[in-house]
Design a protein around this nucleic acid. Structure first.
Lengths: 251, 251
DNA sequence: AATGGACGTTGCATATATTGCAACGCGCCT
DNA sequence: AGGCGCGTTGCAATATATGCAACGTCCATT
């Protein structure tokens, strides 16, 4: 909509790939070097871009600060955090909190497993949307008109033989998940990792976030993990109650 | 330099404070609503801004993703991380990694204390530059021509009675730190928290990053914490060796 | 030591993209 | 119903971003 801003913002993902010099940036934007220079300068003034000692540009520090600050203002995260920690203390496994946003599901909080074997994930990173238990819950609650086109637009990478293979299977799974009110990922993303997840609902009853407990096979079997389901649901419900303003936090 | 981009980017910190609607954004930018709308739309297309269900804008998902990617490109972080974890396993306290960038010092990694009492800090957040042990190391190594003006430009907030009071005291402290090759913060930021820090150097001998161990008085006294100094320095040196390509990581 | 090239930077004229305005549509509350 | 607040759109005016060409600097090559 705004060409100048559009160009400037296009620089960011470009630099996310790695540092680049002025010429490279100008080329990839398809603009004159002087134009690229001025855009980079503006980004620089705002701290989004940093000029390292070899004169090349890379993403800047303020980006972290902004992301961090924004995180803190996601109030669902604030409300949920103590509950996630509590659950982690009780069961010991990795606990995740995720939300849906613009065709993506992303982790916004995480409490690490207290077992030595941990799973790989990062808050802020988009989730494997076709297999993750939290993603199933979040997508299952989308309006039909949004869910179907999205499902058909997605890629269905076969992380493992148990990964969701295609849109049809995914939509079927989502229907099951919506019905039962919880979801699992049994080795669909990484062969040896299982997850159980439950939805967190806002005042309007819509799914506002989802949380999960994950553990590798070497620590607990899938069956054992499933015995935690009631605990996970209780925790999610507690968060829902607080988030929707029905209950107050206990101190 | 570029008015349009400048305005657009000014929206980001504004939204970091919390969600805002179109009118608020326009007011704070000092532009017409229609202008603000178009800027927000462009930011939206790039995923930096998200429109929540109540129509208000807040920072979007791609910002998190970008911040993450930017982090990953800081290769010093990658190299240092296992060392930080190792040190944390040995001493149990909170371990921080920080770098200097554009008149700021910021944490880029952190391993949480294993004691129940933890200190408050966030990666991505600018550090209390006048008192933090890591900041002293990073600034102490700046060229004189850069260090002095910076020191004089800084504010010297009195977090505690032991905070660095002014530029003169700070520059003196930096000279000591540069000489001895390590730094401390003994209750200068928060009354009950002490830190010991050591520098990480690149191939050219310049300080590329700094790491610290922090613990509250209730866990260990300042004297006890200081006994960890050799360990901290060994860890920092190990990272330096690997970062500068002199040694190879042991696996 | 001299030369060539690559790269970043600046001033300037042009044209294009951005701006503010005014009007419209929509939902909400009185 | 009617008025108000808010977001949205088309348009004309002009402020603004753009590409160009020239310059400076650093580095590698002859």
């Amino acid at each position: 909509m705004s060409q100048t801003v559009d160009r400037a913002l296009s620089i960011l993902p470009l630099l996310a790939e790695g540092p680049a010099d002025l010429g490279q940036v100008a080329d990839r934007l398809g603009v004159h070097k002087s134009t690229a220079l001025r855009l980079l300068r503006t980004l620089h003034e705002h701290g989004l871009v940093y000029r390292q000692s070899d004169q090349r540009y890379r993403l800047g520090a303020r980006l972290f600060a902004l992301a961090q600050e924004a995180m803190e203002n996601l109030d669902i995260r604030e409300i949920a955090h103590p509950h996630l920690v509590g659950l982690n203390e009780r069961c010991g496994h990795t606990v995740h909190l995720a939300v849906y946003e613009e065709n993506e599901v992303l982790y916004i909080d995480k409490v690490e497993s207290r077992y030595p074997v941990r799973m790989y994930s990062r808050i802020g990173k988009p989730v494997a949307i076709t297999v993750a238990a939290v993603a199933k819950l979040l997508l299952a609650d989308l309006p039909e008109a949004e869910r179907r086109p999205l499902a058909e637009k997605l890629d269905y990478p076969l992380y493992t033989p148990r990964s969701t293979p295609n849109a049809a299977a995914f939509l079927k799974e989502l229907a099951v998940v919506r019905e039962q009110g919880w979801a699992t990922d049994l080795g669909g993303h990484e062969e040896s990792i299982n997850c159980v997840a439950a939805p967190i609902r806002g005042a309007d009853g819509r799914v506002a976030a989802a949380m999960s407990v994950s553990a590798p096979n070497v620590v607990v079997t899938a069956e054992e993990l499933l015995t935690l389901l009631p605990q996970v649901r209780r925790t999610a419900d507690a968060i829902s109650g607080e988030y929707s303003g029905r209950t107050v936090p206990r101190d």
